[in-house]
Nucleic acid binder design. Structure first.
Length: 289
DNA sequence: CTTTTCTCCTGTATGC
DNA sequence: TGCATACAGGAGAAAA
């Protein structure tokens, strides 16, 4: 399930294999992959043809290619992988994947680029860039902990005023981006904080610790090529990451905590699952009123 | 405004 | 064996 480290691995792959090339033809299949493009997928494809790819950029879980049209106009081609999206660089003769949603061929020939997504939570969009160089639909996404614009002190101040669970805040991409369910659970385990603790009830140093750990666990995962659990997440070259061997909380229900040996528990949270250590991460007292 | 819930999708695992 | 159900979950819309 692609979170920041996995998306960064894909971005690097795009930088290596797609940047510097010119799109010859684009094709979108189905109505969902071309997001919010009212003129439709055929129009979107036509607009991409002849564009030169200048850069592959990322903020949080959003990826975009900086395109330059023949007339010099720059736009961003956004790609969000959702939870099962893949960008594959392949020879054009490669058999079509079952859930192939888009393909791009280039003026210099093979390889081509494909967007494959089983669950179609992901999608692509063409958008204008803001003066800061971010596509407009991405402008509301906060900087992620690995970019220069990330201001952790400001994030801590905003979190401190929130009357919501700290895990909910970690997952709020408008507060800090790039963190998903896996790395949220890992960061909370490392910080020894239960995700149901209210932001406003935690001290600023505790909030700082949670964010520090989120940054560190994502950096560690990036060093190992990202996390993967099944064949769904594959990087741009088709190779899976393997950080899942290093997880301490996520998916570890019933296994002993690597710090204290207490069995890791699973709890329902926001219509999904949270994993934590009952001893290291005690639940907050129930709110009442 | 802030906060929470719902919805989109399909392959895999589990239960009867 | 077959069918029904639960689950995975990012993010934006909708609701509260």
């Amino acid at each position: 399930m692609p979170e920041l480290p996995e998306v960064e691995v894909v971005r690097r792959g795009l930088a290596d294999h797609v940047v510097g090339r010119t799109i010859e033809r684009a094709e979108f299949r189905g109505a969902r992959v071309a997001r919010r493009h009212l003129p439709g997928p055929l129009d979107l494809a036509a607009r991409l043809e002849g564009n030169h790819i200048q850069e592959a950029r990322r903020r949080g879980k959003y990826l975009w290619l900086v395109l330059r049209a023949p007339d010099g106009h720059q736009q961003g081609l956004i790609a969000h992988l959702g939870m099962s999206g893949q960008l594959l660089v392949e020879p054009s003769e490669a058999p079509e994947e079952k859930h192939l949603h888009a393909r791009f061929t280039f003026a210099d020939g093979d390889p081509e680029l494909r967007f494959v997504d089983q669950r179609t939570f992901g999608g692509m969009a063409l958008a204008e860039l803001t003066p800061e160089g971010v596509p407009e639909p991405v402008a509301h996404i906060a900087p992620d902990p690995l970019e220069a614009a990330y201001d952790q002190a400001a994030v801590v101040r905003r979190m401190k005023t929130r009357d919501s669970a700290v895990k909910r805040a970690l997952l709020d991409q408008s507060l800090v981006s790039g963190v998903g369910n896996i790395y949220a659970d890992e960061a909370l385990w490392r910080a020894q904080v239960h995700g149901e603790r209210l932001c406003s009830s935690l001290t600023k140093p505790a909030l700082r610790r949670v964010l520090d750990h989120a940054r560190e666990v994502m950096l560690a995962a990036l060093g190992e090529g990202g996390t993967s659990f099944d064949a769904l997440y594959v990087n741009v070259n088709g190779a899976s990451g393997y950080f899942d061997r290093s997880l301490h909380a996520y998916g570890q229900e019933g296994r002993p905590c690597d710090r204290c040996g207490t069995l890791i528990r699973r709890e329902a949270f926001m219509n999904r699952s949270s994993f934590s250590c009952p001893h290291c991460q005690p639940r907050p007292r129930l709110r009442h009123g």
